[in-house]
Structures are given as structure tokens and as C-alpha cells.
């Protein structure tokens, strides 16, 4: 895709040929991709935050490793974390909030406001994602370029990612005790943009939604509630790309 919006703005486009094209011919561009990803391994490091929950706020660090089967498909393994793994929340009672462990998990002011009104949301709404390990399939049907105010071209690809994995979630009861809900399946779906700066280096922007069935104690602690929760993250990352097709050595003998 040549991005039309930027393309129109940019004056890089050298409009107008000295020689008009006739109806008896068509001009095509068959261009070798500047940024081929085929057979490349991509390691990405993201920082992200959740953007749509009323009561919870996540900050997450994420590492993904993608293997690009071809220009369009990749398999992706990911680990996302907001909490130091393998530390159980329910052992941290007596008012201890576990800030050092749960470095990226917290509640919003909305929860405080609600509680000050002697109200309480469902525990399921308070469940937060501590760690997630997943496997995804990535599909990149769109490869494009932007011209940015005649300063140069930016090559990008857009992708969708879908998959799932195992997540651990936790929530904090009104009595401040953290409850670990255990490990269970979580699905994720993502729309993303990859901006290539070098053949080995790219920036990524992911909008990633995690869907899970939060199974928590009910308000009276006499049973369990299950609620489908979805948490949307916006993530910014950098990618390092290894392997793949060597760039064509045009003339250089080495």
C-alpha cells in the first residue's frame, strides 16, 4: 500500500511526466521489498498499558519472538508481565500491597470512589493480569510506505495477531488480601503496525486485547463468579530482526 494520505501531503512525489502515457501501455512497478521479513526471527521488547478498564490499571513489559514463515505469516511466542512471576498474591495479607512484586498492577481512583460510597464492584472486575505466556499467529497482508514531508520514506507493515496462552491473574479483596486466581487460558487478539527503520531494526505499535474468564470468589466469599473480561493494551516496542534473506549486494565484491 502506498499510503495515500501522506502521499498526497508529501511533496516528494515528483508529479507530472514530461511524456504522457498512452492508452496502449501500462506502467507497473515491480519492486523488490526493501524490508523483507521472510525467514527472519524478530525479537521485540514492548512497554504497554491497559486503556479500557474502569477499575484496573496495568503497565506491562512484553517480550515477543516472531518467526516469519514468509512475508505474510509469522508464529509468535510472547510473555507479558505486570508482576514478578511465581509469587503468590494470597500470601501477602495484612495490608501489604505488594507494590514491589506487582510493579505494573494497580487499581484506579474509580475503585476508591466506589468503595467510599460503600459500594463494591464484582471481584471479577478487579482481576488483573499478572503474567501471560502465549503463542500467536501473525498475518501481515499490508505492506506500505509513507512519505513524510519529503524527508524520506517510511516502510511499514500492518498485521493482525491472534492466539492464546496461559495467564495468571490476581485481585485484591476489600480486606486488602490479594487472591491468586490460578493459571488458566487467555485469548489475545492484536492489530499492529511495524515501522522499519533498518533491515534489522523496527518500531512496533500493537493494540492488543486479552480476553479471559475471570473466576473469582463472590462478594460474600461463599462461592465463585465467572465473568468474561477483556483488557485492551496499547503497546510500543522495538524489534530486532535476525537472519532471513541477505540484502542484495548490488555491486560490491564483498
Amino acid at each position: 500500500m502506498k499510503n495515500i494520505i501522506f502521499g498526497l501531503v508529501a511533496t516528494l512525489l515528483m508529479m507530472g511526466s514530461a511524456y504522457a502515457q498512452s492508452p496502449n501501455e501500462r506502467v507497473h512497478v515491480l519492486q523488490k521489498r526493501n524490508y523483507s521479513v521472510k525467514n527472519k526471527t524478530e525479537v521485540s521488547f514492548f512497554g504497554g498499558l491497559s486503556v479500557d478498564d474502569t477499575f484496573t490499571q496495568h503497565y506491562a513489559g512484553t517480550i515477543t519472538v516472531d518467526y516469519h514463515l514468509d512475508e505474510a505469516f509469522a508464529i509468535e511466542a510472547m510473555w507479558m508481565t505486570s508482576k514478578i512471576p511465581f509469587v503468590n498474591g494470597d500470601k501477602q495479607g495484612d495490608g501489604y500491597t505488594g507494590d514491589g512484586i506487582r510493579w505494573g498492577m494497580g487499581y484506579t481512583d474509580a475503585l476508591e470512589n466506589l468503595r467510599s460510597a460503600q459500594l463494591s464492584p464484582s471481584n471479577a472486575d478487579l482481576a488483573m493480569i499478572g503474567n501471560f505466556v502465549g503463542l500467536n499467529v501473525q498475518f501481515s497482508p499490508i505492506y506500505g510506505k509513507f512519505s513524510f514531508f519529503n524527508m524520506g520514506l517510511i516502510h511499514t507493515d500492518f498485521y493482525v495477531t491472534a492466539g492464546g496462552g496461559l495467564a495468571s491473574t490476581e485481585y485484591q479483596r476489600p480486606d486488602d488480601v490479594w487472591v491468586d486466581t490460578g493459571v488458566y487460558f487467555m485469548g489475545d487478539f492484536c492489530l499492529g503496525l511495524r515501522i522499519f527503520l533498518e533491515r534489522w531494526f523496527a518500531l512496533r505499535l500493537d493494540v492488543r486485547d486479552f480476553v479471559f474468564a475471570a473466576r473469582v470468589e463472590n462478594a460474600t466469599q461463599t462461592g465463585f463468579d465467572t465473568k468474561i473480561r477483556s483488557t485492551l493494551y496499547v503497546m510500543f516496542g522495538v524489534s530486532l530482526l535476525f537472519g532471513g534473506e541477505d540484502p542484495v549486494q548490488i555491486w560490491s565484491p564483498y
Binding site: K2, G7, L13, M14, M15, G16, S17, Q21, R26, V27, H28, V29, L30, Q31, K32, R33, S36, K38, D70, E71, A72, Y143, E245
Partner: peptide, 11 residues
């Protein structure tokens, strides 16, 4: 697949 096809539109 390592090639892109663009049609030329006088740009």
C-alpha cells in the same frame, strides 16, 4: 513474495 507490485499513476 519479496517483490511488491504497485501500479504507476503518474507519480
Amino acid at each position: 513474495e519479496t517483490f511488491n507490485y504497485w501500479s504507476f499513476k503518474q507519480e
